[in-house]
Simulated scan of single mutants.
Amino acid sequence: MLKNSRYEHFHVPSDPFIESERTKGKIKTEFCRAWISTTERFILQKPDDLPFCKVVAFIAVPHYWSSQIIVFYDEDYYRSFWERTGPEQFWTKIDSEYSFCKEHTIKTSMSEICYREKLVDDEIVEGDLWFYGELS
């Protein structure tokens, strides 16, 4: 867990095993189900007396090990978080009827949105970020 005054974020508590090609799809689905369930518990257990607090998780596909749960304490930071336009990181919102949860038979009442991410460093890495939780 890393913390500052604007947010905290929790990374996947495992090694890169979760995103290995050898790891079976059922195991990856169970990880996603548990990650979403943990996010739901965070939301239910957050204190009522915080001036601003939103809980959001993302599942990074196919880079599951990069998944996080983020607790936002600053409204301005929360709003600016969604704007990733480079030069090293680009997010494009995916407007589609496809649902990661429905595809993997994961039940949740939380909102779901997806961004296609492109990271540019020594190489280009692309993937989808599926967000769940308190989304605006």
Rank of each mutant, 00 (worst) to 15 (best):
R33I: 00
Q89Y: 13
D49Q: 11
M1S: 08
T108V: 01
W65I: 15
R116T: 08
E134I: 00
G25N: 15
P51F: 14
Q68V: 04
K54E: 05
D48L: 12
K3E: 13
Y115S: 04
D15R: 12
N4K: 05
S37Y: 03
S14R: 07
I36S: 06
D49H: 07
R22M: 10
T92W: 12
T85Q: 14
K26N: 11
E112T: 03
F42M: 04
V12Q: 05
K26R: 09
T105N: 10
F100Y: 09
I113H: 10
C101L: 08
I69M: 04
I124K: 11
Q68K: 11
V12Y: 07
S5N: 14
T23Y: 06
V120C: 10
F10H: 09
L50S: 03
Y77Q: 08
Y64L: 14
Y98H: 11
E21Y: 03
E134D: 02
V120D: 02
I70D: 11
L50I: 06
F17T: 15
G86M: 06
E97Q: 13
R116G: 04
H104Q: 11
D74A: 08
G25L: 14
Q89A: 14
Q45P: 00
E88I: 11
S111E: 13
E21A: 02
S80K: 14
E19Y: 10
E126W: 11
Y115D: 09
L135N: 02
K102Y: 01
I59V: 07
S20Y: 15
F90I: 15
D48Y: 06
S99R: 06
M110E: 10
L119V: 07
S66L: 10
I94G: 14
E88G: 12
K93Q: 15
E19K: 13
C53V: 08
W91D: 00
D121P: 00
G133W: 04
G127R: 13
E40M: 07
D122S: 14
E97H: 11
V120M: 10
